[in-house]
Design a protein around this nucleic acid. Structure first.
Lengths: 247, 247
DNA sequence: TGCATTTTAAATGTCAGACTTTTAAATGTC
DNA sequence: GACATTTAAAAGTCTGACATTTAAAATGCA
């Protein structure tokens, strides 16, 4: 755990990297306690605030957790799914919103992965998964549902589909893709007519999964992707038109 | 940008959350400059070190970058693909290594997503992608290649396949899944015989992509998944046997 | 005037030391 | 033995200072 100097970066970044590398390489194992902040300060020949900044960097990545009091300190954290979800969603959301990625590209990525889930979901779905899907479809039929609630329910439906694969790694990977799309989806205004069509597709998808027909499910997801892109294009054209009017 | 108090968490965590939320919600836009550390300290009614800890947390997530000197400060960072890749890989790697996820589950997730790429890769692959794949296959044929280099080349081959979709979002999502598997793959010792079989499958996959035969490509990836799991099981059985011998 | 150089002020980076709060173990008391 | 009290270790926070970096502003010079 020696620091490498001769770098132009901050000390706190270097120290964080040092410790992070030790964690990733397995030199520091889960629940192991790091030396106290003062001890680390001595070891790295820096002040305590600098060490603290390094530790906060690691805490932000869920690599460590800290505990106050006697026999407290910084402990190597077992990264659990919820932590990983959170990070994944934050990063993905910002990546999409900050890099003017076209709706089509994001949509394609999301549905490609979701279609990869279909066969597994058909094979392994439990009554609970189906119940969640049905419940969200029911919620979607409620009149007067706000656009926000509609989108949230849409996300919940698709997450249930992904979770039906009973593969937590897949769920984790997909969480980012599905949730990160939400801000983009929110730009689409769903008319009663378009909602109806989507609900119909959702129902058919749920049926296909219940009846374990992966091929049909795949077709339906493809159809949903096409329709989603169509809706987005419509919004895009309309906005372009009003923009042209202004200038 | 007011702090919400009445929470039990650290001040620096609260402040980081505050600013993070402002970024995610779009109130703070890319390249905008945050107030100076002293100003933030005043605004949040805390000391400068506390503000600094909050900023370091955000920096660890690539949400901001800092610049020293006059007219420097903290700026909202445009999260680029390399940043996102890095975070994704770190998180995924640790998630897999720390949660005793079975090889089968991780492998299933990875190949499910990779198979989702096949149709797009077939449709859009450029000569460059094919060249990369061929080059990696060639490297794999070299005798005496270390296990480490073999695995690295394997990863490079599969990344080329994913990149062939020409969908950067998909590449980003898959990066985590493929790279995170490497430590698990490293536990498998590849005999000359097993390498030969994998090289053969890689060659057929590259051919299928070149000839744009998605269905065939899918079958080959399924075969590769099966074979990989078979190899892992073999290692597992052997290890269990030696372990039983000891006790 | 126009260009090169110097100065300067603002900001982050770092440090030292003190104080506060939390927490669990050690100790004491009944 | 069970409960209350003390205590020490550690994170959390604050203050104030100094170092370093950087770009803009001021200055000097041809």
């Amino acid at each position: 755990m020696k620091n490498d100097k001769s770098d132009a970066t901050d000390l706190s970044a270097q120290i964080a990297k040092d410790i992070r590398d030790s964690i990733i390489s397995g030199q520091l194992i889960v629940d192991e306690r790091l030396p106290s902040e003062s001890e680390l300060a001595d070891q790295f020949n820096v002040s305590r605030p600098t060490v603290r900044e390094a530790l906060k960097r690691l805490a932000a990545q869920s690599l460590i957790r800290t505990q106050r009091g006697a026999f407290g300190g910084a402990f190597i954290n077992r990264i659990a799914y919820p932590d990983a979800y959170g990070q994944q969603i934050t990063t993905s959301t910002l990546l999409l919103s900050m890099n003017d990625i076209s709706f089509d590209v994001a949509c394609e990525a999301r549905f490609a992965m979701e279609r990869a889930c279909a066969p597994l979901a058909c094979a392994r779905r439990t009554p609970d998964h189906l119940a969640t899907m049905r419940a969200e479809i029911f919620r979607q039929t409620q009149p007067g549902l706000s656009d926000e609630s509609w989108c949230a329910s849409d996300v919940a439906f698709h997450r249930a589909l992904v979770d039906a694969t009973c593969n937590p790694v897949l769920s984790y990977q997909l969480a980012g893709a599905v949730e990160a799309m939400q801000p983009l989806m929110n730009m689409i205004t769903f008319t009663a007519r378009s909602r109806e069509k989507i609900i119909d597709l959702h129902t058919q998808i749920a049926n296909a999964i219940e009846e374990q027909e992966p091929a049909h499910c795949d077709e339906l997801l493809a159809a949903l992707q096409l329709y989603t892109i169509e809706l987005a294009e419509h919004v895009h054209r309309k906005r372009a038109a009003t923009h042209a009017q202004k200038t």
